[in-house]
Design a binder for these strands. Structure first.
Lengths: 135, 135
DNA sequence: CGGTATCCGGAATGATACTG
DNA sequence: CAGTATCATTCCGGATACCG
């Protein structure tokens, strides 16, 4: 499924839903609102690939995050239907998080953003692509 | 160029640059940082398709924006290499803005986000897709 | 373990006035 | 016309303490 090919000639409109510049901007802003937040993407990438993690695992996997922020961002992602929450009623409590099917589908879209970043002119790349340890 | 096809099985890694969950999250965050800001996407969609607009045109085309915010967001987009600025030295002053080639290339990536939004489960779509007048 | 409640500082945004 | 400068406000994230 090559969605963005020759048929899109420069505007992400004209197909499917038909956007005006205003509605398209709004649409993307809504998506960004779902994704923005200091820790959301980090959480997402911890969960991609069908992984299931409990709260404390995420807390340990994400250095620097506070409980407040972690739960806040998780709850927002949950409210937005990206992340699902499973409560195991037991002592000690156990709560697990994983991506919804729709959340998983974010991957190609984020990938498109990374591809765009990689295409940055060389004088700008330093701000977008960090020297990965595996360079 | 179908970039995100069967080869990406769920992680946006494994090809090209090879990302870890951490670097991928960072990469996407950097892109979002470029795009976030109350007015940036609105500006972008005013400029997509090779359009050239002067300052006052953008000001009129974007209801609610203040001069301060408009110039601030334009300058940031310019610094990020997404927008280019042309100053015509004349009286009265005339300054025009348009997308760089790289800025234009954002279109398919944003399109991918819109496609994702359109795939939202029906109970969530209302928050992502606004009832377009053209529905 | 997996949260909630409260307080605080800084950044992002907005309103308004002024200028080359 | 295309900005700058200043001030007020709102919002986000962090620190800390407490709870079922």
């Amino acid at each position: 499924m090559a969605r963005t090919d020759e048929k899109v000639r420069n505007l992400p409109a004209g197909k499917r839903a038909s956007y005006t510049p205003e509605t398209a901007a709004q649409g993307v802003q809504n998506v960004i609102r779902v994704l923005e937040g200091r820790w959301k993407l980090v959480i997402l990438f911890q969960l991609f690939g069908g992984q299931v993690r409990r709260f404390s695992e995420l807390e340990r996997a994400i250095p620097g995050v506070s409980q407040k922020m972690l739960i806040q961002q998780l709850r927002q992602l949950e409210a937005d239907g990206v992340v699902a929450r499973i409560v195991h009623h037991q002592v000690p409590p156990k709560v697990e998080y994983h991506l919804t099917e729709w959340g998983q589908a974010l991957c190609p879209a984020l990938d498109a953003l990374l591809i765009w970043a990689e295409a940055a002119p060389s004088d700008l790349r330093s701000r977008l692509i960090q020297a990965t340890p595996c360079d």
